[in-house]
Design a protein around this nucleic acid. Structure first.
Lengths: 221, 221
DNA sequence: ACCTGAACACCGTTCAAGT
DNA sequence: ACCTGAACACCGTTCAAGT
């Protein structure tokens, strides 16, 4: 391969100095995200990397692109983990385990949760979204298997479950109570169990709270 | 009362023009929140009210103060509603009903959810926080009663439950799928039921997902 | 081809001057 | 006592000029 071929999938190799700059930027972003959270000043990151702000924008047009790059390895890891758990017994338990590890993944830097949650719903072409779609796919497989096994209720949607896990992490982050994640995931997992569904197959407990109030009309958007 | 008394609880009456300005500002904010969401430009709100931006700041030092004022009536309503539901039978069902109505309340304007969620965890002296505390108290009473009745699991925390309801609303707002709220609240309510707790009292279904993975060590803050 | 940083745009916030 | 709006501060983003 004498490299004159045009393959849009593989990004054309950068010039040596550009490549070096990207590395410096990622390292600087990693450090800055650690100290200030994912909302850190882009100008500060460029300064820390020792490059002009324009260079940062050239390589990472949006903040999300930068975040995605910094989370690159962890993203591949959580996706691979999802695939691996598909081979283990107890589908429901594996889903729960994976979600728990997903929460870990999303808690790496302060403020990442919000960025990722947005990425999960955005569906713009950003790398962050591409990553979120891969994660969603991994979760979908685990969820479908657990549902097929009759362990998880069938009216659960992957994206909603994933976003709920994000919520739990966000609440823990905001309330600064690490214990919140465990409590909330426990409630989520219990609520997800097929046997938890309100119109239950079992004898019905003395007083169920399943009678849902008539939905008051929705307010404006 | 010839009104020379000093009562810090009752804010000293404003001069007529100031009072008028406050009204104009609240009306303008209401309209602007409707059109642009709770993150609307403060400058725009002042312009719309026909007053200087300084006047807005004089009366509402922070955006939260303005939001709190706009939500004033609804806040009193949801708190009163909580008290009223304490008198009705089926404690668990009333808690669920109240939470559902709380979600309505928080969905009035786009972006209010985020502001309120922040208000619930902040505990600064803002009026928004004062309101959130009142709401929390109302929820706490409903929750405690349902727990005492054995309908709701005892390891549920009011603030966490309320914030989870906010999450459901936020997810629906972000995904633009109004159905999400119902699905997620259903899972939440089912998960909150005392009978849903993992180490169940009932015969144990063929394969429970209760075996929680050992918590991997927490990453940095 | 890539980098630089001044210039621009767009917020929110303050405060000296007015009524 | 209250209002005004110019001035300030602080971002993020672009682009003409350089290497």
């Amino acid at each position: 391969m004498t490299a004159t071929s045009e393959n849009p999938k593989v990004p054309r190799p950068l010039r040596a100095d550009a490549r070096r700059n990207v590395e410096l930027l990622v390292a600087a972003a990693e450090a800055e995200f650690n100290e200030r959270g994912a909302g850190a000043s882009l100008e500060d990151i460029a300064r820390r990397a020792g490059v002009g702000i324009g260079t940062l924008y050239r390589h990472f047009p949006t903040r999300d692109d930068l975040i995605a790059k910094v989370l690159d390895e962890s993203t591949r890891a959580i996706v691979a983990r999802g695939r691996a758990l598909l081979d283990e017994p107890e589908p429901g338990a594996q889903l729960a385990r994976w979600i728990t590890e997903l929460v870990e993944y999303v808690t790496t830097y302060r403020g990442v949760i919000a960025a990722l949650a947005a990425g999960f719903v955005a569906a713009n072409g950003t790398q962050l979204c591409v990553n979120c779609e891969a994660i969603t796919a991994a979760g979908a497989a685990l969820l479908a298997r657990a549902q097929a096994a009759g362990e998880i209720r069938t009216d659960a949607d992957v994206r909603e479950v994933i976003l709920t896990a994000h919520s739990a992490a966000w609440i823990a982050e905001q309330t600064r109570d690490p214990g919140a994640v465990d409590r909330l995931l426990r409630i989520l997992f219990d609520g997800l169990r097929a046997t938890a569904v309100a119109p239950a197959t079992r004898p019905a407990p003395p007083r169920a709270m399943s009678r849902r109030p008539r939905a008051p009309r929705t307010k404006r958007s």
